[in-house]
Amino acid sequence: MNVVALIAATLVTATPLLYATIGEIITERSGILNLGIEGTMYAGAFGGFIVTANTGSPLLGLLAAVVTGMLAGGLMGLLTVTLGVNQHVAGIGTTLLLIGASEFSNRLLFGGGSLTQTAKFALLFTGVPVLEMYLLTMLGLAVVAPLAWWLLRSTGLGLRLRAVGENPEAADAAGISVERTRYVALVIGGALMAVGGAFLTLAVLGTFTLNITNGRGWVAIALVIFARWRIWPAVASALLFAVVDAAQLQLAITPTFAHVPRELMIALPYLAVIIALAVAGRGLRYPGAYLKPYRRT
């Protein structure tokens, strides 16, 4: 088995999950389950692609993805925070809307069929084992993850966000605006999810295809629980998932494992989360205000 190729493939697969999972952790720690994640990643992938296609600059594309994600987070905020709509319905609706809107625009601008190749981010350290990766991967591992960890742990914003997600009444009593804090979490989280999606178009493919995120958002939802809402375990789970995914591609060409269906391997993380949930059972500690809209009485 080619270890260098395996590591490189792992890092590529892990990157979108890394961003999306961190984004979802931030929103869930504030008490909002964002099922709009799949749509946000999709829209981020499309938004990044469209701007890059028109400007030739992947950097501007990335910026566009960030803005798209922030808007998607804002929409979730409007629905779940301001209006207090049921979070599952709001999330599923947001996902349906963003995927529909992206595909509509794609069809409108490109007629659906033709695959426009755009400029894309280049691989860094090509050929150097372990270090061969995209800038976004490096940023994710070396900057975004530590920053998110530090943000949640040691900054005022992070403390507020956790307080609002655990005990909004207490946060309110301490003079923290529950609404504003949740909006901030959704907007930051949305931006990260969209970057995760944009990585697919701007770094991996250099183009946009239908069904590009292929359920990665749902994987992120699973990884968040698997990591119990903590950043470093989330990074580890994303890498683990990616290793399994990359390994099964490699294994598929080795004779011993040729008959193990690839799909079973891909399904493993989902099943692992469900098993983890069953084992943890009542012991699993969700954020205190998970799924609960807050309204002062």
């Binding site: 403390l159 956790r162 307080a163 655990e166 005990n167 009444e169 207490a170 946060a171 009593a173 301490a174 500690r285 205190g288």
Partner: peptide, 8 residues
């Protein structure tokens, strides 16, 4: 009912 965030 204390306005405390228990996990913090």
């Amino acid at each position: 009912h204390f306005a405390l965030v228990r996990p913090m």
